[in-house]
Design a binder for these strands. Structure first.
Lengths: 345, 345
DNA sequence: AAGACTTCCGTAAACGTTTACAGCTACGAG
DNA sequence: CTCGTAGCTGTAAACGTTTACGGAAGTCTT
């Protein structure tokens, strides 16, 4: 028999043509039965039987081309190993999987070029939409997001007038919660371990710390502030530097990894936590729950923000004409042993 | 002008037809120029110009349909929040991104049904291949993997004769390394905190522990063994139970989360680590590096295994006729303060 | 100067699906 | 008995791309 290399060819994976031929119906009828719309009882039976017999499974790509949907959702974060992004990713994955879609992850390394490149690639329609959590927001970002032909939801701070779906939290207020909690305990020399000031979270937290001190009539003392990366090692080193030159009775940390690093620096320096120095982190990730003593932390609702962002995105995909929305998740202080003297760790 | 609703229609996103029309060439020429094969200097110039003018960006789906490639790689793990899978995912993402592809992640929750369902969905060709790390391996798994029309690489133990690309480690030997290290220090009552015995890692580690004890002529003492989940809380609880009835001078833990839990149980029980009790974990994740004191751990090369699996998969995609391959990553003990008395943490 | 070769181009088919449209049959109403 | 309607069905076009094939034009060899 001549190999005509037609769709209904014998070898290769079965297509709707194969099924139709075997069932003795047209591809239209086969397709209708397989998508569950219409067909006489007899046709349905024959098509179902044929499909089962040849092990037919529809081709997702061809379907996508027709419907211009991929059922994929992209997520772009700086580092998929950072616990706060892991928490977000988990929450997002759950929502996305619930909607029958799948999650594509990208690690951008925080590079602006790589993030804008991803946004441009979205135009290829490889995904139905994207959730992005940029650590720095440049004009290039904003432009790429606004111009994107596919829906984008941003997790993080954006200019107030940006017409972009946006989930944010108020880390300034989060820092205020931490400071307030420490002041209420009579702490007077509150240190601050921050991340880079040229990042969105770093600058917000810096502003929050200054405002919170002012609100309680405490003077801002440069010697009680250190800046490093948002990492364990950097936090530990920053705490060591700070302890070498000052005597804080409390430390506020810009994220949990810094807080764990600070805890270890304190233990090495033989400061009792919380007796000598109270400690508060930020993000409320597993990192502080698995520290000993457990570290108090300001929850910025990573899971909530992730889930919310995913839902916003799904809603916008369903209805692209929605007005831009902005959701804010309130920070919440979770008090643990590291800042609660009266409780035995 | 009548709206003919053709591909080269004015509205909507530009396609290769739009570009071709604007450049005054056929779609074939346009496509060739855009894929960088052939074309006269003049044609190339005109097409490039037209593409830039209309902001043409190729449609990934249509290209996939034609080439039957999606440039997506799927990864299925039990829980994308577990640090050992996070480490793997990071390594895999790096290799996958390097090859110009993207990573689709799935959290299976360890459910066999959900894993086999994913493997079946692979038949839809939504991804070019899959890396899966099942925590339990059933016949249903094996069948689904072998039957899969798209390449699959398994991270984890498989029956020796399974014709499947496979990256494994030897956690039996890993446990042996830990026991040997402790015995060499003169530890005599070595406890063991394991995960569920009906999982692949759980049973392998149990066998490894028994063999290692036997190799050193130590009797297996039920009272020094506890079983729980592979989680922090379960590990802490298991350690508490064990400490309540026995006096170990060392603890081997089946993974790092259990080890961190055990560390905290030991600190609460006022046992000095490592003086009273030496502690060794397994997987060598950030969890033990961020503990205080830092915990020794047997590295099973999560990153290496992830990267290796990704490379095996890419190679098989490039050449489906390769014979099934099996790579083994040797375990390696990383000694830290929790089992090195002489060093100041 | 004629044939062989090369280079470039356009037509059209193909990937596998969904779906608008029209034709067919069967049935009930008048 | 005829006509309108309803329900199925098949044909064919469409989604946007790549590519086999044949024709046209130009270059080189003899």
């Amino acid at each position: 028999m001549g190999r005509k290399r037609l769709q209904s060819d014998g070898d290769g994976r079965p297509t709707v043509h194969t099924v139709a031929a075997r069932a003795g119906v047209s591809i239209a009828s086969a397709s209708r039965v397989l998508s569950g719309i219409g067909g006489s009882a007899e046709t349905i039976r024959r098509v179902r039987e044929a499909a089962a017999a040849v092990g037919y499974v529809p081709n997702a790509i061809a379907r996508s081309l027709q419907s211009s949907r991929t059922d994929l959702i992209a997520l772009a974060v700086e580092d998929i190993g950072n616990p706060v992004y892991v928490a977000m990713m988990r929450a997002i994955e759950a929502v996305v999987a619930d909607s029958g879609r799948q999650l594509v992850v990208h690690a951008t390394g925080g590079r602006v070029a790589s993030e804008t490149a991803l946004l441009r690639r979205l135009a290829h329609r490889y995904a139905d939409g994207m959730i992005i959590s940029p650590i720095r927001v440049t004009d290039a970002h904003l432009e790429a997001i606004v111009d994107s032909p596919a829906p984008v939801v941003v997790i993080g701070q954006l200019p107030a007038d940006a017409p972009v779906d946006n989930v944010r939290t108020d880390s300034r207020q989060g820092i205020a919660l931490a400071v307030e909690h420490l002041v209420a305990q009579g702490r007077e020399r509150i240190g601050f371990l921050n991340g880079p000031l040229d990042t969105v979270p770093g600058s917000a937290r810096d502003a929050g710390f200054r405002a919170a001190l002012a609100a309680h009539g405490i003077e801002h003392d440069e010697r009680l502030v250190e800046v490093g990366d948002f990492q364990y090692g950097a936090g530990r080193a920053a705490a060591e530097r700070l302890l070498a030159r000052a005597e804080p009775d409390a430390l506020v940390c810009a994220n949990d990894l810094i807080a764990v690093g600070a805890l270890h620096a304190l233990l090495v320096a033989d400061r009792k936590v919380p007796h000598d120095v109270a400690l508060v982190g930020m993000d409320d990730t597993v990192a502080v729950q698995m520290a000993y003593p457990q570290i108090s932390s300001v929850s910025l609702g990573s899971e909530t923000r992730g889930a919310l962002a995913a839902r916003l995105l799904l809603e916008r995909i369903a209805d692209p004409d929605l007005p831009p929305r902005r959701e804010t998740v309130a920070p919440r202080l979770v008090v643990r042993a590291s800042s609660r003297p009266e409780v035995n760790p």
